[in-house]
Amino acid sequence: MGRQIKRIAGIAMVSTVAMFFLGCADNYQRVGEEKPARVYPQGVAEHFTLTYTETKEELQSQGSSDSRIVAILKSDRSEDYENLEFPYRTFPNGLLVEHFDEQGQKSTIRADYAIIYTRTNIVDLQGNVVLETHDGKRLETTQLYWDRSNEWIFTQQRFTFSNPEEGTVLNGQGMDFNRDFSYFIAHKTGGEMLLKEEES
């Protein structure tokens, strides 16, 4: 008799909780100002290429000045939201960035998806992000931020960084570094280092 009462009480409790959750469903249909506005790009470009250049000296009203290519951005598709209060541009089909140093040496960054925030000059790279420097260093992660104004790159995600010059592979989570990896801070790390034995 006691078991049967407990069983009935348990069924009653489950039924009450189920009715509570079903009764709390949001069936309200939003209209007018409270309905979130859909955002559409003001422009879409297919087979997008954008070249950034800089001049070595200030341009004069007459004549020309030497300039160099700093970066080239390439994507199958670019969507322009520059007309919004916080302007940005997306690359839903991926992005390739080719970056050139002052000696003309090329480093590349590839990502499955990217957003460039125009006002802050920050590039948010997502998906299979792979950065390769001209001297063979390689960083792989799922998200990477590139601060173009300060030439600073950082991630809070898990990463693998390999350096063939030193024979090292570093794994970790969270990393900040400058564009050529001459200075970097890794947060949580572990890795492998190959050591060459000296001949006796």
Rank of each mutant, 00 (worst) to 15 (best):
R3D: 05
I5V: 15
A9Y: 06
I11Y: 07
T16N: 12
A18C: 11
F20M: 09
F20I: 05
F21H: 13
G23Q: 06
A25E: 02
G32H: 04
E34D: 11
P36F: 11
R38I: 05
V44Q: 06
H47C: 05
F48K: 10
F48L: 15
T49P: 03
L50E: 11
E54C: 09
E57D: 12
L59Y: 09
Q62M: 10
S64W: 05
S67M: 10
S67Q: 15
A71G: 04
L73K: 05
S75R: 02
S75L: 04
R77T: 10
S78F: 02
S78N: 05
L84D: 03
E85M: 14
F86Q: 13
P87M: 11
T90Y: 02
P92Y: 01
N93V: 09
E98A: 12
F100N: 04
D101Y: 06
G104N: 02
G104S: 02
Q105A: 04
T108L: 04
T108E: 00
Y113E: 10
A114S: 05
A114Y: 07
I116A: 10
T118G: 08
T118R: 10
T120R: 11
T120W: 08
I122K: 09
V129G: 02
V130S: 13
V130F: 07
L131M: 07
K137T: 00
T141A: 08
T141I: 00
Q143G: 14
L144R: 00
Y145L: 04
W146M: 10
D147T: 01
Q156I: 14
Q157A: 15
Q157M: 14
F161A: 04
S162Y: 10
S162C: 15
E165F: 11
T168V: 03
G174T: 03
N178K: 06
R179Y: 13
R179E: 14
A186S: 07
H187I: 05
T189V: 06
L194N: 04
L194M: 15
L195C: 04
E199C: 14
E199A: 15
